[in-house]
């Protein structure tokens, strides 16, 4: 089997990896591919595309609102695959899809995996998919399609469970920076540092990217001291929300994060 593009990124670059999240079909339905192409022209390392859901419980107001707007625009998983199909082969950055279990379940998990491979998706994040269900119903399927499933850990996750998650993860572990929903906090505190250090001392096989609360160059740089890189979502959605020129907004935002 060929190497998953997520692994290739970690093999080629050891630090300050940037994963940027945006919601499919937002701010307008056709912006999905525009944003994707613009991000691909920057030196972003991963692109995470949100599949909107009516009830995103792990997300704060910014991403909730983008979900509502995108659903009103007519986005669906089917439509997203159609959009990704139009840029197939053009995008070099690994694509990860993030979404809640219910829409994926209704779409049909096997069909979902087939289409992910078809349009060049490398990894999946389903925050409300329990480990036991993953192991019983999804793992074999994901592996047979070469898709990586990415799990989250939080400051409250026990060491025993982190080890279990590490054992069954591929690509990287999504290290949620604080006890919070997305977009809730905008700084990194001492207790968070202690948590990052604790996880780093565990000798895990998977690298970590830190997400939640990363919004600018300062928080990005700080997060990168404790992990291979970081994930930015809400701050990028806020920038897109008021954008009049998508390409310009994307490039300005990324250059602001990387401070180059």
């Amino acid at each position: 089997m060929t190497t998953n593009p997520i692994d290739s990124v970690f093999q080629n670059k050891d630090q300050k990896l940037l994963n940027v999240y945006f919601t499919a079909g937002f701010p307008t339905l056709e912006d999905t591919t525009k944003i994707l192409k613009s991000l691909d022209e920057t030196d972003v390392d991963f692109v995470e595309i949100g599949m909107p859901f009516s009830d995103p419980v792990a997300d704060g107001p910014t991403i909730q609102e983008s979900n509502d707007v995108a659903l009103n625009n007519g986005i669906s998983i089917d439509k997203l695959f159609e959009q990704l199909g139009t840029v197939k082969g053009e995008i070099k950055t690994p694509i990860i899809l993030m979404g809640y279990l219910n829409p994926v379940m209704q779409y049909g998990i096997e069909k979902f995996c087939q289409n992910c491979v078809e349009v060049g998706v490398s990894g999946i994040i389903i925050p409300d998919l329990p480990m036991q269900d993953y192991l019983r119903q999804f793992k074999q399927l994901f592996e047979s399609y070469g898709l990586y499933n990415i799990f989250l850990i939080s400051p409250q996750t026990s060491e025993e469970r982190i080890k279990l998650i590490d054992e069954h993860s591929n690509g990287f572990i999504y290290m949620v920076s604080s006890a919070s929903i997305t977009g809730a906090k905008a700084d990194i505190s001492n207790s968070q540092e202690a948590y990052f250090n604790r996880v780093n001392s565990m000798g895990l096989k998977n690298p970590r990217l830190i997400g939640f609360g990363i919004s600018n160059n300062e928080t990005f740089e700080k997060a990168c001291q404790y992990a291979k890189g970081a994930i930015i979502g809400s701050a990028f959605i806020k920038a897109l929300r008021k954008s009049t020129n998508i390409d310009h907004t994307v490039k300005e935002f990324i250059s602001g994060i990387k401070n180059n």
């Binding site: 419980v57 792990a58 279990l101 925050p127 409300d128 998919l129 329990p130 269900d133 799990f151 989250l152 850990i153 939080s154 409250q156 996750t157 026990s158 469970r161 949620v176 006890a179 919070s180 929903i181």
Partner: peptide, 9 residues
């Protein structure tokens, strides 16, 4: 119990 990891504990 289909909850995100942040609610698991």
């Amino acid at each position: 119990a289909y909850v995100p990891e942040m609610l698991y504990p």
